[in-house]
Design a protein around this nucleic acid. Sequence first.
DNA 1: AACACCTATGACACCGGTGTCATTTTTCCT
DNA 2: AGGAAAAATGACACCGGTGTCATAGGTGTT
Lengths: 363, 363
Amino acid sequence: MATIYDVAKLAGVSPKTVSRVINEDPAVRKSTREKVDAAVEQLGYVPSLAARSIRSRRSGLIGLVTGAISHDVTAQGQGGLPDLLIVQGIQSALAMSGHTLLIADTGGDLSRVPDLMRTFEEHRVEGMLFVAKHHSQISLPALRASTKLMLVNCFSDEPIPAILPDDERGQYELVDRMIKAGHRRIGFLTIPSGMEAQGLRLLGYQRALAKHNIEFEPQLVHALELGDVAGQRQMTWNALDNLLNLDQPPTAICCGNDHIAVTVYGVLRSRGVTVPDQISVAGYDNHHLVAETMFPPLTTAELPYRAMGAVAAKQLLAMIDGEIIDPNPEPQLVSGPVCWRESVLKIPTNNIRKFQLKTRSEK
Amino acid sequence: MATIYDVAKLAGVSPKTVSRVINEDPAVRKSTREKVDAAVEQLGYVPSLAARSIRSRRSGLIGLVTGAISHDVTAQGQGGLPDLLIVQGIQSALAMSGHTLLIADTGGDLSRVPDLMRTFEEHRVEGMLFVAKHHSQISLPALRASTKLMLVNCFSDEPIPAILPDDERGQYELVDRMIKAGHRRIGFLTIPSGMEAQGLRLLGYQRALAKHNIEFEPQLVHALELGDVAGQRQMTWNALDNLLNLDQPPTAICCGNDHIAVTVYGVLRSRGVTVPDQISVAGYDNHHLVAETMFPPLTTAELPYRAMGAVAAKQLLAMIDGEIIDPNPEPQLVSGPVCWRESVLKIPTNNIRKFQLKTRSEK
DNA sequence: AACACCTATGACACCGGTGTCATTTTTCCT
DNA sequence: AGGAAAAATGACACCGGTGTCATAGGTGTT
């Protein structure tokens, strides 16, 4: 591959002059510039960022560590692929700044993170991002103090700046809107109880109820713990059975995420209960592929993944540029909109005939 | 940041000796190695790959250009996010070889590709991959001949090695299996007619019919052209209406992809037709998130995205290592399995009562 | 024409590593 | 102990650029 020296020789100038042309230094005579440009063209010369970065101390690289890519979509119904939207948000924000994204994947194994970050340090990245699959707490290996690091979708004991989804507020606004639509008894099938988002969303649910002076009834809340596809369906079945057989069944059901809502649709359908005429259903995540193609389209709260990525990237760039010297160690919350679709009825009904609820066996 | 010279001074040895220790050269006395290691530890020294790569000509970087990351999931029901699985396959294959993945995104704008590839050349990547959203033909900017490039999920006029899904075979095997399950009249709602995969899958469908001496009936095939969510639903509705009102309605319907199948489920349900009892439905893609959570779970042909990515990465590495001097310019086809689930009945029925099909208006 | 002054270019060292080869130190053998 | 062979280490140039400063070349003024 051609070097700056080859170009210099061909153009009959010094390497430094070629360097000037490459870097658009105005102090080059037009005729000289043309000679050099011609030589560059002829040789197909491309400058080496590696060589340049040695001197300039700027690699133009940003490292991203994630499990998002290798996310085993096959194995778990949880969450799924959408955290890749975070990567998308990051990517688009970085592209504009002229940085290139270096991506490494944990393959689901967090113990590989130190190695991956080490590799990034060897590449002299100007900053790093760590993107988690789910809103969760993590602990990372110690890095040199000068390393700019940003957590996305997770937080740490250490004072590392983090970007998180505002789960509490999202659930609050969704339930608030459902109550305003007339619902007063709202069932809640939550994601597994160990998950960070579960507690926050439950708080949002309760805050919305409290705002409207509706008493919180624990019997309306069921946590769907982890399990395989069949297990998930069975747990959903049981929970729904429980809710629908209450003396006063709920007029609406909030699901911990959109995939639970899919299962709920299926179970309700096989029991002859129609959505939203007989009961309303809402999700969480706004997993577009799912929520929009479901029938009826699903009302849900959006997890603002892309926005979180963009915010994180911009903040990291500001840290790199020295604009933010001492980042706020408190996680920054990003909230998403409520996506109101047809699965929630504005005027709630509750015309589920009891006899339909006796059937128990599935298929 | 500490350099090899700092370490050398602190350890009381020459820089070259430090280099030897870093590179695990066996010709270093144990006591010397320990001194150096201690200095490395104390200074937190991390070698610079940029400096190293200048001399060794090996950057350890692989560039990946894609629209996958910035894929606007919101806008289109087509395809969706799963091409990211290709990235996943690539990533896992590369990680094992000690290469780091550099990712750049077109943001949906192919005209940015030359710039992105240029940036990769500046980073002196050892090879590049181009991943397309859909099986399609593309044309890329000219690169220096020595650049190792691999196309994934697309092909080109130029003799660039490519990895493609075997759409024809996937559809063939799916339909073959459906016929073996007893179906002889199989409707086909294809993806838009402009798409590469549409023609190939139609060929597979026809080949399967031919194998079993079933005449191909064009009236059973409807192409669903592009449109918004509502338009898609309307087109699906019309096509289904057409199929179900035939004198001999099909006992099964193949959908061009899993998302069409979701819509088909919805439409059939709103017309009171049950799947699979009254009619069987199959998809294409095996979009896990969708196919497995649907009720009943969807029979579909898998698009082997992850495998394609892995194959592409391995082939690229082989090219880099000089094992493949002259790669086959013919695209390499990767086929995926049929995923047989409950949406296709083994013994087909056709007990759709005609009067159910008169209803026309949706909601 | 002589001088000052500004502009364009080049010489050279340096960034942080590594390859080559010479030199020093250690080991082993008689 | 002395010397040869082997092992360990170092000196130095080089990879492909850029920063610094000196110098050559051109212009304008009187």
